[in-house]
Write a protein that binds this DNA or RNA. Structure first.
Length: 95
DNA sequence: CTAATGACCATTA
DNA sequence: ATAATGGCCATTA
């Protein structure tokens, strides 16, 4: 019933090399309109077991990150996620 | 209690 | 393509 925990749990289901959108996470936890609040929750994540860097915007741009968008992008890249001009390729997004 | 704040989104121009 | 707009909602002050 704790919103942040639900968000973190959903986040952990994203495999390495793939990403999900804030909106998708919101739907996963049964709160389809809480995409903005999802970002708020992820912002406070401090656990290395929660891959919050795998969550991006619905337009496939990188989105925010507590330690800088820069870091987020390189972490993804290091995991094998292809980014094109500030955009993640569709193929890397979870269906 | 209300008001402000954001790692957002879809629509419109 | 970009920018503005209104909506959305959990959290925090």
């Amino acid at each position: 019933m704790a919103f942040p925990e639900d968000v973190f749990r959903a986040c952990r289901r994203i495999p390495k090399g793939k990403v999900a959108t804030y909106s998708q996470i919101a739907r996963m936890i049964g709160r389809p309109r809480s995409c903005r609040a999802v970002g708020n929750a992820l912002n406070k994540n401090r656990s290395p077991f929660v891959p919050c860097h795998r969550v991006i915007r619905s337009d496939l741009s990188i989105g925010g990150f507590a330690h800088g968008t820069k870091k987020k992008a390189e972490m993804l890249k290091k995991e094998g996620v292809s980014i094109e001009k500030g955009r993640v390729l569709r193929a890397c997004v979870i269906r």
